[in-house]
Simulated assay, not measured.
Amino acid sequence: MEFKDYYKALGVEPTASEAEIKTAYRRLARKYHPDVSKEAGAEERFKAVNEAYEVLKDKEKRTQYDQLKASGYRPGEEFRPPPGFGGGGFQFDFNEMGGNAGFSDFFESLFGGTRRAQPQPAVGSRVRLAIPLERAFAGGKQKIRIGDRTLEIAIPAGIRPGQTIRLSGQGERGGDLMIEISYHEHPEFELDGQNVLYTLSLMPWQAALGATVSVPTLGGKVGLKVPPETDSGKRLRLKGRGMPGKAGNGDQLVEIEITAPAPQTAEQEALYKRMSELFPAD
C-alpha cells in the first residue's frame, strides 16, 4: 500500500493549528460532498478529506502520524507499518463513526490493529452510535453492528446527542441494550440548540442589490430572499428549518459572508478600478 500525506489531502502545512485544520476540512468537505459536487472523482476526494481529518483532528493520532512521517516516509512510497507501531493504542469505537467510514488500507494498517473490539453487550450494557445530522433531523432506520450481529434500529426525528434508544432483549443473556446517540461532524452545518447555523457566501452585488439564492437545509434546498444592502455578518432566518423538538422545529440561521471574486479579464479589472473610484474606502 502507499503512504498517505494527510496534510496534503487537507491542503495545510504540518504546522497548521487545530483551527486551520478544521477550517480546511469544512471547506473541502463542502466542495467535494457527493450530494453537491459535480467534479470528477469528488466522492473519492471526499473520503480522502474525511480520513485525513479523522487523523489530524485527534492529538494522539496526529502525534504518532507525525512521528511516522518524520522517520522518512514519503507520499506514494510503498508502506509497511514498522514493528510495534501504535503501541500507545489507538483505541476508538468504530461504531461511533458509523462502521469503518470507508477508510483506506493505509489507515487500517495504522489504527485498525489496536482498535477496541466491537462492544460485546452485557446485561444493562451501553454502546454509542454516531449518526449523520440529516438522519437525526429526518429520523429513519440505522444499522449498527454489535459483536457478530447487525441490528437495525429506528431513529426518531429530532433525537439529541446523549439521548438513548433501548433495545429490549438484545443484550447478552436477554438483557436490554442501551444505544447512546452522538452526531457526526457536518461539513456545512452547526447546531445551537434546535437552531441550525449555516454560512452563506454572497457576491458583493448580491449583497448590495438583493437576491434570491438557493440555500441547503437539512430538509433540502430552499430559496432565501436576501434584502438589499445586506452586510457581512448579518443573520437571516429560515423559520422552522431547524431540528425537530417537542414544541416544534427550530430555525436555520444563515450568516452572510461577502466574498469578492478575483478579476480574470482586463474588463473585470477595469470595473473594479471604476468601483474603487465610485466607492472610496474612507
Rank of each mutant, 00 (worst) to 15 (best):
F3P: 07
D5V: 02
G11T: 08
A19P: 01
I21F: 05
T23G: 06
Y25A: 02
R26L: 09
R30V: 01
R30Q: 14
S37R: 06
E43Q: 04
E43A: 12
F46R: 01
A48Y: 03
V49G: 00
E54A: 10
D58W: 03
T63E: 15
Q67E: 15
A70I: 05
A70W: 06
S71G: 05
S71V: 08
Y73T: 12
Y73V: 10
P75Q: 13
E78A: 14
P81C: 08
P83M: 09
P83F: 13
F90K: 03
Q91P: 00
E96D: 15
M97N: 12
G102S: 10
F111G: 00
F111H: 10
G113R: 15
G113M: 13
R115L: 08
R116L: 15
A122W: 02
G139Q: 12
G139C: 07
E152W: 09
E152H: 11
A154N: 15
G158S: 03
G158K: 09
G162P: 04
G162N: 07
Q163E: 15
Q170L: 02
G174P: 13
I181M: 15
G193Y: 06
L197P: 10
S201M: 04
M203A: 11
A207I: 08
S214C: 05
L224V: 00
S232R: 08
L236N: 01
R237G: 00
R241F: 04
P244L: 11
G245Q: 10
I256C: 09
P263Y: 01
E269G: 11
A270Y: 09
S276C: 01
L278T: 04
F279C: 06
A281S: 14
